[in-house]
Computed example of a mutant assay.
Amino acid sequence: MFYYVSGTVAHVEPYLAVIDCGGVGYACKTTSTTISQLQIGKAGKLYTYLHVGEGIFDLYGFATQGELGSFKQLIGVSGVGPKAALAILSVCTPQALAMAVITGDEKALIAAPGIGKKIAQRIILELKDKLTKEQQEIGMPTAPGIVAGEKSKAVEAAAALAVLGYTQQDIAVAMKGVDVENLPLEEIVRQSLKKMVK
């Protein structure tokens, strides 16, 4: 329904930002990461997600499309609601979330308030399963000269970006020109993400 809201930042508080768009204040639930990028009285733009349920009509807003993509991936995991997703994205950047899923790093997710070991394990398991299915459907490209069973940094970086909900086409464009041979995996993901959120 809403793709983004753009206007003047009227109010911020923990997990909430109000954007004044032509005299109408849109209250967007959000992460501390997004709030840190907003200034009251200055222009602000948030990519949005409308959560509708029984007696619920909440608008969520994020400074980047990468953060919005991560939010959508998280709430798609059984047992993870919007509140838990915001908590995770307040301690994990989209890049850190992708790396946590790919490497199975539960501790990165448990650092979020209200997230226990069981839910962290479920997030990692379900997002990895989803990624595996997508790779099988699309046919994830593998770099030439790779021994069977060995993953290249390019493939792992592409997998991390796919966890965030980016398409194979988006990933291919974003990774073009990134020095995948010499850069560490996290830097490859960071540079690719930076290109996608411009």
Rank of each mutant, 00 (worst) to 15 (best):
A112D: 03
A143P: 07
T142P: 03
A157S: 06
V147I: 14
A143Q: 15
K118Y: 05
E137I: 09
T142S: 12
K117G: 05
G139K: 01
I146C: 07
E150Y: 08
L127K: 09
I146W: 08
G149A: 07
T132Q: 13
P113S: 11
E156T: 10
K118L: 04
A157K: 08
K118G: 00
E137L: 09
E134A: 13
Q136P: 00
L125E: 08
G114P: 11
V155C: 03
I115W: 03
I123R: 03
I124K: 06
A154G: 09
S152F: 11
M140W: 07
G139R: 01
V147T: 15
K118S: 07
L127F: 02
G145Q: 09
I119W: 02
A154F: 06
A112V: 12
A111I: 09
A120V: 06
K130H: 12
I146M: 15
G149T: 07
K117F: 04
K117A: 06
K128L: 11
I124C: 13
D129E: 15
L125R: 13
P141D: 05
Q135Y: 02
T132V: 03
K133Y: 05
T142R: 10
I115V: 15
A154E: 14
A154N: 07
G139T: 07
E126P: 15
T142M: 05
G114V: 02
I138T: 12
Q121S: 07
A143T: 14
L127C: 13
A143N: 12
K128P: 03
P144A: 07
K118P: 10
K151Y: 14
I119V: 12
Q136R: 09
V155Q: 08
G116W: 04
E137G: 02
A120P: 12
L125V: 15
P144W: 01
L125A: 15
E156F: 08
G145P: 15
P144K: 01
V147E: 06
P113R: 00
K151N: 04
R122I: 00
G116K: 13
G145A: 12
A120H: 00
K130D: 14
L125G: 09
E134N: 15
K128Y: 00
L127D: 06
E156C: 05
Q136A: 12
A157M: 05
A154Y: 05
K130E: 10
I138Y: 02
E150V: 15
L127Q: 08
K153M: 11
A120Q: 07
E126M: 07
L127E: 04
L127H: 00
E126W: 05
P141K: 05
A143I: 12
A143Y: 03
P141I: 02
I138K: 08
P144V: 04
L131Y: 06
A111C: 08
R122C: 09
T132E: 11
S152K: 05
L131G: 01
K130G: 12
I123K: 04
A148L: 04
I119D: 02
A157C: 10
G145L: 13
T142Y: 09
I138R: 01
S152T: 14
Q121E: 13
Q136H: 02
K153E: 06
T142E: 14
V155T: 13
E134T: 10
K151S: 08
R122V: 02
V155Y: 03
Q135I: 04
E150I: 15
M140H: 05
A111Q: 10
A112H: 03
E134K: 13
L131D: 05
K128F: 00
E156N: 08
Q121P: 11
K151I: 11
E137H: 01
M140D: 00
L125W: 08
K128R: 11
A154Q: 14
